[in-house]
Design a binder for these strands. Structure first.
Lengths: 351, 351
DNA sequence: CTGAAAGCGCTTACAG
DNA sequence: CTGAAAGCGCTTACAG
């Protein structure tokens, strides 16, 4: 069924059919009704490719999830407790706005080709990139495509340093630095003086921010920064588990509290600790980041910094759509607060 | 940059450019190389809409997740521990095969319009439907679209009963009945005689299968079916929590074990139980279904029936692609085994 | 082996 | 208010 068929059945021209489909105002109500009736009878839907080719938008946005280091993991990106809610929220919001979303994951630099193609082949009106590793070369290339693009969790100063035309760009961040500061000060307020950290991937913006806030806050309060208590985790629960096990079996002294750059690693650490007979929060306090679903379902319930993922995703979707619709878009940036949610995994240190 | 521009630069016609793009064999190596060089230099990618319009496939499959009852829930579909891995695996497999995937969620009958449109507007070559509620009317309508379609978790006999042309259809299921039977017999083998169940949504195929297997297995072993111990859960953790709370506060006797139609509910039940001072597995055994990530990360680790979600998703993707490519597709059906994974949440009942 | 031409199904100035 | 026509960027018989 093509617009031509509808036109014939309704006794008008294709032009008129197109006008009613596109809600032109200069179609008399009677004609409109006649055409609409035929359209409904036949469940006609205009071919989206023909429309797009003739200059309409695709009404599709791309969602690209970057997870370069997880290629070999059994737990892939959407099961990743950080990505899944983003995907959820982006799809939800876009769908509610009448947009389809085209998804592609990037596990290796090669996969990036497919995201570039999605833009180059004009499959989407604009895109959102979320992920743990967006190096500046890749971002430069993406921005160079001159399509509406929203970056989630990216260092703004890096973009600023490049002299790119970035009017079709927007960045959505969370205030990880402030959120982490709140968590560390909470631990300090509880009386902890030796606080360790399980770090995230340091080549991500949030990984760096969360670490910097930890370091700065300890310094600000005149507390020692003990290298032995600063563990590499890369946001990966397996690595965090290994590292904490190493520390535990080393026989050396432990801090009285840990801050973990994400909940996934925090939960691994809790497992390792309990395997060594260390109880939480009696013997060790622990706070995480992300406030994933599991955080409030395990025992003890994990204290964690909550990211407003739904709001961030919604903002990202609204931004791409805005950039797509705008005649002369302009660069913008928005940052959402991250707040500590106190639960049961922290308490005063033992004397 | 259009094929015409490439043609000019390479000193050939658009036809030839198209031939090298589409890997026609009758292009001399020299000409091919010349054209390819220009294409690369300019990062040219053929417009996907023009290609599709000219008769090529879209290289995009649709993934539609149906979750009618969760509209008002804060935890949306991709955070749902059952869907997320499917989405993950489908996107992964499709991407690996060079396909894009278009995602849309369905929370209400209205949303179905968008999935119909995706087909009618020819945005996709075929689709996969996964979800908790696919009633026969909707399925009939979808099948009527005559596009390649794969249904995950659907009652085959219902399809058979309809006299539809279903050659463009495939069904991918798991052996939930057998998996549940294994779980119940395991509990019986442990010595349990009073086994309760938290049910899933009974209007889903898997919800019904898991219940039927429970009932049949108890009967087969001559064990009582106690209505008080059969709780409504609809696959929702909130409802399961409420129902078990009701039973606990009623002051009436309890079974010695529970089988839950999914892990999400099983974990809620564990929470409720522990809030009432009932320890697992000492006072109560509990087994779940799905083997979600959380199952092996909580304390005690949950015994659960594992679904081969990755394999199922992969099969679904391969099936749609096969149906899309085939000249004369034929209806097929495939069912994957579900196996019990024994962990720490079950033991012998107390005397 | 290769180019000119028709066609895919729309939209949108243009002319009336 | 409405139709005929051009054009979007490809692919693919067709003819040579």
């Amino acid at each position: 069924m093509r617009s031509e068929d509808i036109a014939k059945l309704a006794g008008v021209s294709r032009s008129t059919v197109s006008r009613v489909i596109n809600n032109y105002t200069n179609v008399p109500e009677e004609t409109r009704a006649k055409v609409l009736k035929v359209i409904e009878q036949h469940q006609y839907e205009p071919n989206s490719f023909a429309r797009a080719l003739a200059g309409k938008k695709t009404d599709t946005i791309g969602l690209f999830a970057i997870s370069m280091s997880e290629k070999e993991n059994t737990t892939r990106i959407y099961q990743n407790n950080y990505f899944a809610p983003f995907v959820d929220a982006v799809v939800d919001t876009a769908n509610a706005r009448g947009c389809y979303v085209l998804i592609h994951t990037v596990y290796s630099p090669d996969d990036f080709l497919k995201v570039k193609q999605a833009f180059l082949q004009k499959r989407i009106d604009g895109g959102i990139i979320v992920g743990t590793q967006k190096d500046i070369n890749i971002v430069r290339e993406m921005v160079g495509l001159n399509s509406p693009l929203v970056l989630i969790d990216y260092d703004i100063s890096e973009i600023m340093a490049e002299h790119l035309d970035r009017n079709h760009l927007a960045i959505v961040n969370s205030k990880d630095y402030e959120g982490t500061t709140e968590a560390i000060e909470y631990l300090i307020g509880l009386g902890h003086r030796e606080i360790g950290m399980i770090c995230g991937q340091m080549n991500t913006y949030s990984g760096r921010e969360r670490y910097m806030a930890y370091e700065d806050t300890l310094k600000k309060h005149g507390l020692p920064l003990n290298e032995r208590f600063i563990l590499k985790g890369d946001f990966l629960k397996e690595l965090a588990y290994e590292e904490i096990k190493n520390l535990l079996t080393s026989g050396e002294s432990l801090p009285t509290a840990f801050f973990s750059a994400n909940d996934d690693m925090a939960i691994s650490v809790m497992e390792a600790l309990s395997e060594h007979g260390i109880s939480i929060p009696e013997d060790m306090s622990i706070a995480g980041f992300d406030d994933i679903q599991m955080a409030s379902r395990i025992q003890p319930k994990l204290t964690s910094v909550k990211l407003p993922i739904y709001e961030m995703s919604k903002a990202a979707v609204e931004k791409v759509i805005e950039l797509c619709d705008s005649e002369q878009p302009t660069f913008s940036t928005i940052s959402f607060p991250a707040r500590l949610v106190e639960r049961d995994s922290c308490q005063h240190p033992k004397k």
